[in-house]
Each structure stands twice: as C-alpha cells, then as structure tokens.
Amino acid sequence: MLAEVSPLSPPLTQQLPDPLTLAIGSLITLLTASVLEEFFYRAWLQTRLEALYGRWPAILASALLFAAMHVSHINPEAIGVGIASVVAAQGMFGLMQGYLWARYRNIWVIILIHTIVNLVYVDMLI
C-alpha cells in the first residue's frame, strides 16, 4: 500500500486503511525494508562487490539491483513509465545510500535515512 502513494503512482482506486493498520504496516516496513534491505544491499552485497570491482562499480551494481527489486510495484497498464520511474527514484536513492555506505561505513545512519524516506508517505496519508 505504501508504494501506491508516491507522487508518480496512479490515483488510488481503493479506500485507505485505518491509521492503526497503516501504523502497523509502517512498523513492518521499518523492520523489513529499512533494516534488511540496507544490511543486504549495502553491508553485504556492496562490500563484496567493492572488494572485487572497486567502489563505483559496486555502488552502481547494488543501486541497480536495489531498483530492480522495486519493479514489482509497477502498474501493469503503464509498464514503461513505471520501470523508468522506479529506476530513477529507487536507483538514485540506491546510489546515494551506496555512496554513503562506501564513504562512511555507518549502517545505522543509512538505516535511519531509509526509514525516514519510507515513512514520509505515511504522513501524507494521515
């Protein structure tokens, strides 16, 4: 549901859930997306790719894979625009997070940034 309310998403065709359901969904998103994604894409994958290929190829590869994971949230009626918007938005976010990981190696700051970005849309719904 949270992926359906981005500025580039098509208009909603269903009622929004009540605030408690939205809060519980946000907490689950916090635990899965923010923590698990950053540990996997930055701390595990990018670190290994950096050792093999260098900093920037690793950042680019992990950002593209991060964006590709979000392609499942695309409206089938606008597949071309959907893929382009996911690659642009999630890819750029992945590049930023990848650079921050490569530069500072502080996973908790990166998780905090990811959490804030994920929860921005919740404020728009309430």
Rank of each mutant, 00 (worst) to 15 (best):
L36Q: 05
L49F: 01
L45C: 02
P57W: 04
L36G: 15
E38Y: 00
L60W: 11
G54T: 14
S34Q: 15
A58D: 01
F39P: 09
V35L: 08
E37D: 06
F39I: 11
V35C: 08
I59Q: 14
L45I: 01
F39E: 10
L60V: 11
Y41P: 03
A58Q: 00
S34F: 04
L60P: 04
A63E: 11
W44P: 08
F39K: 11
T47R: 09
G54Y: 13
L45M: 02
G54H: 13
E37N: 05
R55A: 09
L45W: 04
R42I: 06
Y41A: 00
S34L: 10
R48C: 06
A51M: 13
E38R: 07
F40R: 00
F39T: 08
E38D: 07
L36R: 13
A33H: 15
A51E: 15
L36S: 15
Y53N: 12
A43S: 14
Y53L: 08
A58K: 00
R48L: 03
A61H: 00
A33S: 11
Y53D: 13
L52W: 14
L49P: 00
L52F: 15
I59D: 07
I59M: 03
A63N: 05
I59K: 00
R42K: 05
S62V: 04
R48V: 02
P57E: 05
Y41K: 01
A61M: 12
S34G: 15
A63C: 10
R48M: 11
A43T: 09
T47Y: 12
L49I: 03
A33G: 09
L45F: 06
E37H: 01
A43G: 13
T32H: 15
W44N: 12
G54W: 07
A61Q: 08
A63W: 06
A61P: 00
G54D: 09
G54E: 02
P57I: 04
R48T: 06
L36V: 14
T47I: 08
L36C: 15
A43E: 09
R55G: 13
A58F: 00
P57N: 02
S62C: 14
G54L: 07
A63G: 06
T32M: 08
A43D: 11
R48S: 14
A33N: 13
R42W: 00
R55K: 15
G54N: 10
Q46N: 07
A58I: 02
F40L: 03
V35E: 04
W44Q: 14
R55L: 03
S62G: 08
F40A: 07
L60D: 01
R55Q: 05
Y41F: 11
